[in-house]
Amino acid sequence: LIIQAIKSKKIRGRSALRPLDIAGLSQFLVQVSNLIIDCAEIKRLDIHPLLASGNEFTALDVTLDIAPFEGDRESRLAIRPYPLRLEEWVEMKNGERALFRPILPEDEPQLRMFISQVTKEDLYYRYFSEINEFTHDDLANMTQIDYDREMAFVAVRRSDQGDEILGVTRAISDPDNVDAEFAVLVRSDLKGLGLGRRLLEKLISYTRDHGLLRLNGITMPNNRGMVTLARKLGFDVDIQLDEGIVSLSLNLTSSDKQE
């Protein structure tokens, strides 16, 4: 955004004693964005001009219009912010704790490492094809999501070295917010800890609360673990041997109890 503004001369240098600190200006824009996110009462905010000298920024003239606001505070935003409220600590069967949280753009390196620890067989069950490598664009599409139309939860183990992704579940809704396609993937060496079930239960709860009516997915007949889990969680399971797939569907409006 800043580089484009410089090229189009919306940011203009006038005998600046110190060069523009792009990182500092980026942080200033993030702070303004956080102000808009936190204060739904702001109807209009105009900062003009903003003077920059190195990493020092001065707003010379600011116009701010405010008014009472009612309703969904996030519906007014072009892109929904990170939903911090959806973070949850979960205890695995081995006694360790994992943080279940929405995926973040900065998870790309951790996601690449996670995928490298999934067997080719499990990746084939997930993507229905042999994938040798995920490109930066592939990983960016998986991590840079619109939290309104798509949701991906990751189970992470926290350490001094950072977050380590243990599993991922994802749902992408249709334009009418009626159906959503889902998928679950757990690191191949961590099966049996209950991660797949807990991730899918969290996704079901989220999509139901989000107003979706159905959750759909497909897998392969040989993926017995996924088929068994789907049955336990109340999915309708349609095994189509001639097509080599298993269709999974869950009515999110049903009050049926899970096994």
Results as ranks from 00 to 15, higher is better:
112 R>D: 09
120 K>W: 10
34 N>L: 05
189 D>V: 08
199 L>H: 02
238 D>V: 04
150 E>F: 13
103 I>K: 06
200 L>E: 10
241 L>Y: 15
193 L>S: 02
178 V>W: 06
105 P>C: 04
121 E>H: 12
15 S>M: 13
7 K>M: 06
70 E>N: 11
37 I>Y: 15
44 R>E: 13
7 K>S: 11
249 S>A: 09
64 L>G: 09
188 S>R: 08
18 R>Q: 03
105 P>M: 02
237 V>R: 07
46 D>W: 09
99 L>V: 06
199 L>V: 00
211 G>H: 11
216 N>L: 12
225 G>N: 11
1 L>G: 15
11 I>H: 04
131 I>W: 09
155 A>L: 01
170 R>E: 04
78 A>F: 11
78 A>I: 06
5 A>D: 15
86 L>T: 04
5 A>T: 02
2 I>T: 07
193 L>C: 07
13 G>D: 08
112 R>N: 10
207 T>R: 03
118 V>L: 15
72 D>C: 00
48 H>A: 14
256 D>W: 04
141 N>V: 08
1 L>R: 06
240 Q>F: 03
116 S>L: 05
26 S>L: 05
37 I>V: 15
105 P>E: 02
206 Y>I: 01
159 S>L: 05
32 V>E: 03
139 L>A: 10
132 N>W: 09
43 K>N: 03
247 S>K: 13
171 A>R: 00
5 A>E: 09
127 Y>C: 14
246 V>R: 03
194 G>S: 01
